[in-house]
Amino acid sequence: MEEQTPFRIGFVVLDRQIIDGDGRPAGKVDDVELTWEEGGGPPVMSALLTDSAALGPRISGRAGRLWRSAMRRLRPSVSEPARIAVEDVAAFSPSTRLTTAAPEQANLAEAWLRDHVIGRIPGARRGDDAGE
């Protein structure tokens, strides 16, 4: 019989870099979602949460509360952290590789800053490699 090594969420999943289907960095695994199936049994990891807001509950104490309230004020329209279903994950370690694109919601801050700040500075579209 094949010996099963325990799958440690804290070590293999949490705080790992997420790489989306196109090979681009898409944040960190800030928290995980556990679901209890009907009829009892142990909880199952159903999704990864990636969002600086999801970090709040993981930083305990006053700093965590401060983080959460700051995040709420920064974006009142978004209440839930970005969610990635476990089925979309191709590999967990060393980096979390997705088979799909990252959820839209994970890129809200990036898109806003791109459109309103960085994109407005001349030369923002040019990288070091010619043609970009």
Binding site: I18, T50, S52, E110, G123, G127, D128, E132
Partner: peptide
Amino acid sequence: QYFGWTWGKTTAPVRAARFHT
């Protein structure tokens, strides 16, 4: 790097908006 954003001076700034900000 801590938050897992795209970073780097060699990529066009529009692709690493948070890093450049």
